[in-house]
């Protein structure tokens, strides 16, 4: 390992070690002002077709189409549980480095809404809506941060965060406990809760949660902020 790589290793390890605090509190140094990386708003999922004709209609009504699901106000927290679980490596000597990282507990929370077309006899279908909130946990998420440096200026030019799932836990995420993780509006019957829990815990929907969480983890905002933090450090050297 070259001395430059040793220095980068030390610096990057310090950055990684400081990330939990920086993610919680933000980072301000000189002209660099980075806000906290918490409560990250994720894109809404709108009217996603679950492909299931769920029994969510009022009495005497029957479903005439598959239930659609929207996820709104989705927010990600827990990025401050980040840490490194392996050494810094240099795929390209001096100018490209890679750090295996792990997120201990990432929380995805938001609101869900289901839309079901229900029909009574030959009358025109009416839409039945159920809503509530969810709080989901993703644990031990493994990903890698790849950092490229400008070989001349020796500053970070790109930082990419990529979920690697080396421990193969990701595909089973989130761990779902309907009794704790979901809330329902007051009009929802116990039977409907059971149906809704099954819908919200179905693999297509769990995949939607994972996609949302992945966007938060691999977010360009976090990459950009890491570039700024690393360059702020390296700038101290000249």
């Amino acid at each position: 390992m070259t001395q430059w790589e040793q220095l980068l290793t030390t610096v990057i390890n310090n950055v990684i070690g400081s990330l939990p605090k920086l993610i919680r509190n933000g980072f301000q140094s000189g002209s660099v002002d980075i806000p906290p990386y918490t409560n990250i708003l994720l894109p809404d999922v709108v009217q996603y077709d679950t492909g299931q004709k769920s029994v969510l209609c009022p009495i005497l009504y029957h479903p005439v189409d598959s239930t659609r699901l929207s996820l709104s106000n989705s927010r990600l927290n827990g990025m401050d549980t980040i840490s490194a679980y392996g050494p810094v490596s240099f795929p390209i000597q001096d100018v490209s480095l890679s750090v295996p990282l792990i997120l201990e507990d990432v929380v995805l929370e938001g609101n869900w809404t289901t839309y079901s077309q229900c029909q009574k006899g030959s009358a025109s279908p009416i839409e039945t809506i159920h809503s509530g909130s969810f709080v989901l946990h993703f644990t031990d998420i493994q990903f890698t941060v790849n950092i490229d440096l400008d070989p001349n200026a020796m500053t970070a030019t790109s930082v990419n965060l990529k979920l690697t799932d080396v421990n193969q836990l990701w595909s089973n995420q989130p761990v779902f406990d309907a009794t704790k993780d979901l809330t329902y509006d007051s009009r929802t019957s116990e039977g409907q809760k059971t149906v809704l829990a099954a819908v919200l815990n179905s693999e297509p929907i769990r995949k939607k949660y994972r996609e949302s969480a992945r966007k938060g983890i691999e977010n360009n905002t976090l990459s950009d902020e890491m570039i700024k933090i690393i360059n702020t450090l390296l700038a101290q050297l000249g």
Partner: peptide, 15 residues
Amino acid sequence: TDRLDAKAAKMVNET
């Protein structure tokens, strides 16, 4: 030849 030498030179020049 180490890149750190170059970085240190930059540091010395600038600081």
